[in-house]
Computed example of a mutant assay.
Amino acid sequence: MIKLESLSKHFGKAVVLDSIDLAIEEGEIVVIIGPSGTGKSTLLRCVNFLEQPTKGTMTVGDLTVDVNRASRADILSMRRRTAFVFQNYALFSNKTALQNIAERLLVVDRWPKEKAYQRAREILEQIGLADKADAYPASMSGGQQQRVGIGRAMATGATSSV
């Protein structure tokens, strides 16, 4: 469950998000659409604290954070509950598809290498790219790279299964 209350983001005098209220229930699928420059990516970046919101509260699962009082621990905890697929997929060009997906599990969540790679293989199977485990981003199509980015976001949700 995700709930945003009065979420705002200002860049100087420019108000990009103005008191956004949003509630997304578990299992609900929501699409955010609109013209370029209307704050779609900013909204998503604020939920992950990739951008610091100006004001408001955010709830993801059992964690509620007042953005003006968010500690480093709150921010890290929020990031562990969310995932973000960048528009350019932000893959590591020097890592294979398998390594790109396993990276968070290894570095952030400190999973043992064997367990992280096994989970990454499961995800590659789910996204239809099991045969691309050893492929580097430069050798994959844009759609395949996008699916690896989605696979990396899926790995974020795997943190509770250690």
Rank of each mutant, 00 (worst) to 15 (best):
Glu103Ala: 11
Met58Asp: 01
Val30Glu: 11
Ala70Met: 10
Phe49His: 07
Val65His: 07
Arg81Leu: 14
Gly61Asp: 06
Ile20Thr: 05
Ser19Gln: 15
Leu43Cys: 10
Asn88Thr: 13
Ala83Gln: 11
Gly27Leu: 02
Gly12Met: 06
Leu17Ala: 04
Lys13Pro: 12
Met78Arg: 02
Val108Ile: 14
Met78His: 01
Arg80Gly: 11
Ile101Asn: 00
Ile32Trp: 09
Ala90Asn: 15
Thr57Val: 12
Gly12Lys: 06
Ile20Cys: 03
Met78Glu: 03
Met78Asp: 03
Phe49Arg: 07
Asp74Tyr: 04
Arg45Trp: 05
Leu76Asn: 15
Leu91Ser: 09
Val85Arg: 02
Pro53Gln: 05
Phe86Glu: 04
Ser41Met: 05
Arg81Gly: 03
Gly37Gln: 11
Pro53Val: 04
Arg72Ala: 15
Pro35His: 13
Leu63Ser: 11
Val85Leu: 10
Leu22Gly: 10
Arg72Val: 14
Arg45His: 11
Ala97Val: 01
Phe92Thr: 07
Asp18Met: 04
Val60Phe: 12
Ile29Asn: 12
Gln87Asn: 08
Gly37Phe: 09
Gly61Leu: 09
Ala70Gly: 08
Thr96Ile: 01
Arg81Asp: 03
Arg45Gln: 13
Gly34Lys: 06
Leu76Tyr: 12
Gln52Asn: 13
Arg79Asp: 01
Phe84Val: 02
Gly39Trp: 07
Glu28Ala: 13
Thr59Pro: 01
Thr82Ile: 05
Gly39Lys: 05
Ala73Phe: 10
Pro53Ala: 11
Leu44His: 07
Arg81Ser: 06
Ala102Trp: 00
Lys55Trp: 00
Asn100Ser: 06
Leu22Lys: 08
Leu43His: 08
Val15Thr: 15
Thr42Cys: 05
Arg104Val: 15
Lys40Glu: 10
Glu25Met: 09
Glu26Asn: 14
Ser36Phe: 07
Gln52Tyr: 09
Thr64Cys: 13
Asp21Lys: 08
Ala73Glu: 15
Lys55Asp: 13
